[in-house]
Design a protein around this nucleic acid. Structure first.
Lengths: 229, 229
DNA sequence: ACTGCATAGTGTCAAACCTACACGATGAGG
DNA sequence: CCTCATCGTGTAGGTTTGACACTATGCAGT
């Protein structure tokens, strides 16, 4: 008997929780399904994993196909394998979460989605499948991870002000932070570089722009260093 | 066309990284495969996910079948989907890690394993498939998680001495901790309860036994509390 | 009974860190 | 030149950390 007939098999999908930040609100991107099941309902972008691609590749491909986003921070979240989570048959889904930079990508709906749009994470519509569970888990992961890994930067453009960075943390952690204490801690990490540029086109005193020092972080990472804020 | 023929499918397995603590050393349980591929080599316990069970159930079932362990702490780790990780065909594996209490389970090899044994994590033999990657990831997860979640207790019997607990942390973190500082921090969490019992059958002054207060931890957990050591 | 041995159990000090808190500086726009 | 919005800065008190060494207990062996 050939190997390929011995194994039980399952349909495998990927789903992506895509976070973005828009006027101080944390948003998540959803697509409106235009195929059954759950036709017309909102859902996380995602789809089936092809047999000749890794699951990471599948997540990137689906994200690009369904929303036009590419080159984003993307990390595996958790694998959801409850029975009955898809009404058609047994489907196991590997969930990912993505962070995209401040609305410099406008989104576009694609083939199997009728529409794609950003929703405030605190006010999402009811979702298809078990996508609410996935979203909850992604939010928790994000809250946890932002405290010890420098991923807040992924939601901002390359150059940003310290106030913008603070708003990222406040949006994710859902709490207000003290400006002076926040700046002190961030600067003490030594991982943000002051540039000689300032904000433009603001109707008040312009803030200095900073950059995240990704190279330096990579060096420190292996030495057990933790980025804590 | 019936639904079940529309989906691409993948063989799905689970693999478990089982940690235990034995005379101050962190150990991992491995089984010796008695079927190809990698027949005769050491591997993580695991196997195929049935179509009518959740992946969590599959992990528990495989663990019990291959090693006789049940009722252990078990948590999903990561899903490995590289192409070619199984020489036979495309197989995606959902990895779990487990923590078992101080050798109160002796292990037994079962049907599709020739043997099961504990190895010091710092000195494992070469492993089948990509199991070395999985083990590395499990170790990193364990190191990270032990610092903010009370999982060290899962490696100890219900009642334990503070020195034993300290050895757990030292084994996982691979570093020595100061006795007085460690005790101060652990007791300050308020999550270990002093019992009126002491060690028995030791050839020196007997240490007081403590218990982890799981109920109290569950209460605090939702309030954003963190167990830090 | 006494001694040796192994481990248990305990306190202090200095340095670092955290939190709370308020105001002058800047620059655009009218 | 005034107003407005936001930028950027320091301090003091309380808390936490990390480094550090000795006495207490109880079994085992003589």
């Amino acid at each position: 008997m050939a190997f390929e007939y011995e194994f039980p098999r399952a349909a495998l999908t990927v789903d992506c929780v895509v976070f973005g930040l828009d006027d101080e609100d944390l948003k998540v991107m959803l697509i409106q399904r235009n195929l059954p099941p759950f036709k017309g309902e909102w859902a996380l972008p995602g789809g089936f994993v092809h047999v000749d691609e890794t699951i990471d590749d599948a997540a990137r491909r689906e994200l690009e196909e369904e929303t036009g986003l590419s080159n984003v921070f993307l990390e595996q979240l958790y694998t959801f394998g409850q029975l009955g989570r898809d009404p058609r048959e047994r489907v196991v889904s590997v969930a990912y979460y993505a962070l995209v930079k401040l609305m410099d990508h406008s989104v576009q709906a694609a083939t199997d989605a009728a529409d794609a749009a950003w929703f405030p994470v605190m006010d999402v519509p009811s979702l298809a499948f078990d996508h609410h569970d996935i979203l909850d888990m992604a939010l928790n992961r994000l809250k946890g991870k932002v405290r010890y890994a420098p991923i807040g930067f992924e939601l901002l453009p390359k150059r940003f002000t310290l106030s913008q960075l603070q708003h990222v943390y406040e949006a994710i952690l859902e709490s207000e932070l003290d400006k002076r204490n926040f700046r002190r801690k961030v600067l003490k990490t030594g991982l943000v570089i002051e540039t000689d540029e300032v904000q433009k086109d603001v109707a008040h005193r312009a803030a200095r722009l900073y950059e995240f020092d990704a190279d330096r972080y990579k060096e420190l990472e292996d030495t057990g260093f933790n980025f804590e804020v």
